[in-house]
Amino acid sequence: MGKYECAVCGYIYDEAQGIPEAGIAPGTQWEDLPKDWVCPLCGAAKSEFVKHGEAAVSIQRMPPTVAGAHTDMEEMSSAQIGALCTNLARGCEKQYKPEEAALFTELAGYFKTVSTPASAGADSPGFDKLLGLIEKDLAEGWPSANAAAIDANDRGALRALVWSKKVTLILKSLLTRYQKEGDAILENTGVYVCTICGFIFIGDAPPALCPVCKVQDWKFEKIEGGS
């Protein structure tokens, strides 16, 4: 009997125990769990689980590379500058500087309007393109950035990388499910986003603690409308 661990939230599925309250009898093998089974804690797909005890939790390494990186401000896109501005607004809010926070928010608002995406036509790359970028980042972006952060002994960078990678795994799970099942996965349920790390939760109410960054549930924001 083996155990399998969720790479996003650390939940462990124990084959010996099963999950009787969810109708999964003790002794149910990992392979026998339905293909569309998801982590009961965070909603990650089965593919995001790794055999417990195997070295899969260790951080992937890849030579750090700066290829394609834009280090100059002039080369940042409006969306990037927008994120930088809202980050600075948050920094001001945390320091109880409402005037500065409001100014950065206003600036971010401007960059948001100018980075409006091309309208989603019928041939819009949409979800496929999103998944493509996610796959590429998971294969190259994180391993390379992790190596850079480890080499520089940069705990802060590593923290942001661990969180964003876990959140990206969730995005991957959700987008993959959405492609197969469509709007059905959102029927009669809420969609919540953790305002600290970006974790997305689909369910009636957000978890008491965010599975990724461990912030309390009131920091989640419910996504309204948008149908």
Partner: peptide
Amino acid sequence: TVIGALKALMQSKA
């Protein structure tokens, strides 16, 4: 190197 790697990821996120 850290800045470069983070900005590359951030660019993709944006």
